[in-house]
Write a protein that binds this DNA or RNA. Sequence first.
DNA 1: GCCAACGTTGGC
DNA 2: GCCAACGTTGGC
Length: 144
Amino acid sequence: MSKHYWLFKSEKSTWSWEDQVTQGDAGEEWDGVRNYQARNFMREMKVGDLGFFYLSQRDKVIVGIVEVIAEAHPDSTTEDPRWECVNIKAIRSLPTPVSLDQIKADPRLSEMVLVKNSRLSVQPVEDEEWRILCEMGGLASEPG
DNA sequence: GCCAACGTTGGC
DNA sequence: GCCAACGTTGGC
């Protein structure tokens, strides 16, 4: 099966890109998700899948690229067996972070979940969207 | 800081 | 199983 692409949302004050980068190859659990849709997407993730790291709230910008390094497992931050999470590690920062404004201004990206359902914290990204966003971010081609 | 949108909870 | 109430998210 081919690789899938995702988008992970975080608030800078809770978990910043710098925090993620600091974890290095060890990565970190993407814990704390308490939403079934988001959890279900994490269950679909495979090791090696790539994702964008997006900062919500003040920043509203895609700042980097992460890779899934562990598939869905119980979320260590809760006893509730319903909630699972994957582990991800930072791959690289985007040379040019891509803002929500830019995304909204591009008709090719108007179908993005980020635009249509702004509250979903873990979401899929279409191959074409991924390519466009990598370009906008200053990457000639996708990494990895 | 406000508020709309949405998801979850819990009473019935 | 429905739905009103409530809490949270996140853009503005």
